[in-house]
Design a protein around this nucleic acid. Structure first.
Lengths: 111, 111
DNA sequence: CTCACGTGTCAGTAAATTCTTACATGTGTC
DNA sequence: GACACATGTAAGAATTTACTGACACGTGAG
């Protein structure tokens, strides 16, 4: 995922997802490799429902991806990993993305 | 301002500042050049107190800088401009910045 | 003096985010 | 059957963020 391909709404979701210390630590932990939810919660010292919520936001922003697998002993285990995102944030990049923001787009269409 | 120089807290403030459509439009408008508050509020169609609040957040995050000047006819006018920031956001970059997050630092110091 | 223009700030409300507790499901083992 | 482990989700409280409206100040022009 590259900065240039993102719309305003997608960038907004990505920035919002990054604007939280828990989610940064989740991304940091997943940068080394994939991990499943319950173990990740124990490693980071947070409750599983809370981690679940944060992972949902990261996934909605396209920063992580999860896949449900069956372990050898038959249990369902959900692994998450980071997507190979690369955002380059500069004033000019933001200016280029402003016309694709939801509100601005609405204004252009409906006027 | 370069990504590598930022601490966790500073990155967090920057991401939080970027996670708002109004603030992206403010940055987009200032990417072309400096502007003063009242005129910028009219251009963007938002109230001046609201713009003031957003500019405070952008300034606290180090994304814009403001300087108070006296116009030719003696009035105090405050101009804002973008700082030349350049953030490169990748999973590895985030991992490197996790140890400098406030909570993690506290935990390391106080244990 | 009043008006128009610039600045900043405070109080209150509306809305979104964050977090905990408790519940539900399914599988393998003792 | 009861336990340990995995999954997901829903309700409610606490906190933070976003926004409006009203107020303050100062200057130059009519």
């Amino acid at each position: 995922m590259d900065s240039e391909d993102l719309t305003g709404a997608q960038s907004l979701a990505a920035f919002a997802a990054l604007a939280n210390p828990h989610r940064l630590r989740i991304l940091g932990a997943l940068a080394d490799g994939r991990q499943y939810v319950s173990l990740l919660a124990r490693q980071l010292g947070m409750s599983r429902p809370l981690l679940h919520m944060h992972l949902q936001k990261l996934q909605a922003a396209g920063l992580v991806a999860g896949e449900l697998e069956l372990s050898e002993d038959g249990k369902a285990v959900k692994y998450f990993e980071t997507t190979p995102f690369s955002l380059h944030v500069t004033p000019q990049a933001i200016k280029a993305l402003v016309p694709t923001l939801p509100e601005a787009a609405d204004r252009k269409e409906t006027d």
